[in-house]
């Protein structure tokens, strides 16, 4: 950042090239930024790598680790993964997480497409008030909502159900999704809508055949942000579910850590890795949408 375009073009002086010590200093002075970069990168990935390596180790091997060289498993085995996958409740919990991620994302994005379109295209009375009414709840920490929502759930008779989780997950995802989508829709020229209107297209046709295909990147961004939020959610599922029938992966991971007496860390770590793997895979495939979405969501 401090090397401006000009400085970068400058070649090392001949005298520097001859003197290896000075040359070394020169290289370091131009590339020192790699030192903090590597250190920070190691700090960021160490927890995941340590957990990953432990998931391939046996329990004895984990407990007997004494030096850094014990980082690599000596006899890597898939025993822990086998145990997690063979456990009878795992498919239920995994299905619940997947179901909630998909259902709440579809509901939230559908509602947000409509709302985003209205905010991007129409001038109407109370527009600003309504926009704030949808956006401001984004700043509510979800943990602060659990007591009143718990009472609401009890009075609606939706205890321990995926339906209630879908509703609450959708609602918490809507503010951000509406904001991101309204931004994307506003960037699409109005001429497209007008041309379609002249051709006799209805509002639904405009949305379905024009706006949604054109703003596909924005919709993917909103989808990913909703999926990630739902997949990783914890306070709601902790407060609103009691049995395994509506439990999700994070909650099960939490219980796993609590319930085991002598901790079988290889199983706990295998479960952790399995629960974060789907998100990491989505990330690797769709990284640029995520970067765009997070930045858009932050900078108003």
């Amino acid at each position: 950042m401090w090397n401006t375009a000009k400085a970068r073009q400058q070649k090392p002086f001949k005298s520097i090239r001859r003197n290896s010590m000075k040359r070394m200093m020169y290289i370091i002075s131009k590339n020192w930024v790699w030192i903090p970069t590597i250190i920070l990168t190691i700090m960021f990935i160490t927890p995941i790598l340590w957990s990953l390596s432990a998931s391939f180790k046996s329990m004895v091997e984990i407990y007997s680790a004494r030096t850094l060289w014990d980082f690599l498993p000596k006899n890597p085995s898939l025993r822990a993964y086998g145990e997690v996958l063979a456990w009878k409740d795992f498919p239920v919990v995994f299905f619940n997480s997947t179901f909630l991620a998909i259902s709440s994302t579809l509901v939230a994005v559908a509602a947000s497409i409509l709302a985003g379109y209205a905010f991007a295209r129409y001038a109407f009375r109370w527009r600003h008030v309504l926009l704030l009414a949808i956006l401001i709840p984004r700043i509510l920490p979800r943990v602060s909502l659990i007591i009143p929502l718990y009472e609401l759930m009890v009075s609606l008779g939706l205890m321990d159900s995926r339906l209630w989780l879908t509703i609450t997950y959708s609602a918490t995802a809507i503010p951000l999704a509406s904001w991101v989508l309204a931004g994307f829709f506003a960037a699409i020229p109005n001429d497209l809508d007008e041309a379609a209107t002249i051709e006799g297209a209805s509002l639904w046709q405009i949305l379905w055949y024009i706006l949604i295909p054109v703003s596909w990147p924005g919709i993917v961004t909103a989808l990913i942000m909703c999926i990630r939020e739902s997949w990783n959610e914890f306070p709601f599922v902790l407060a609103f579910t009691t049995s395994v029938s509506a439990r999700t992966l994070p909650y099960q991971l939490f219980l796993l850590r609590e319930s085991v007496g002598v901790q079988d860390w290889s199983v706990v770590n295998a479960f952790t890795i399995l629960s974060i793997l789907p998100m990491l895979m989505v990330f690797v495939i769709l990284q640029r949408y995520i970067v765009k979405g997070v930045t858009l969501g932050a900078i108003k």
């Binding site: 927890p47 995941i48 990783n232 914890f234 991971l253 706990v268 998100m279 990491l280 989505v282 990330f283």
Partner: peptide, 16 residues
């Protein structure tokens, strides 16, 4: 790499 923790659930981060 800098974004990886953002994808991990709070529970998974805490357990790790």
């Amino acid at each position: 790499v800098s974004l990886v923790p953002w994808l991990v659930s709070g529970i998974a981060a805490a357990v790790m």
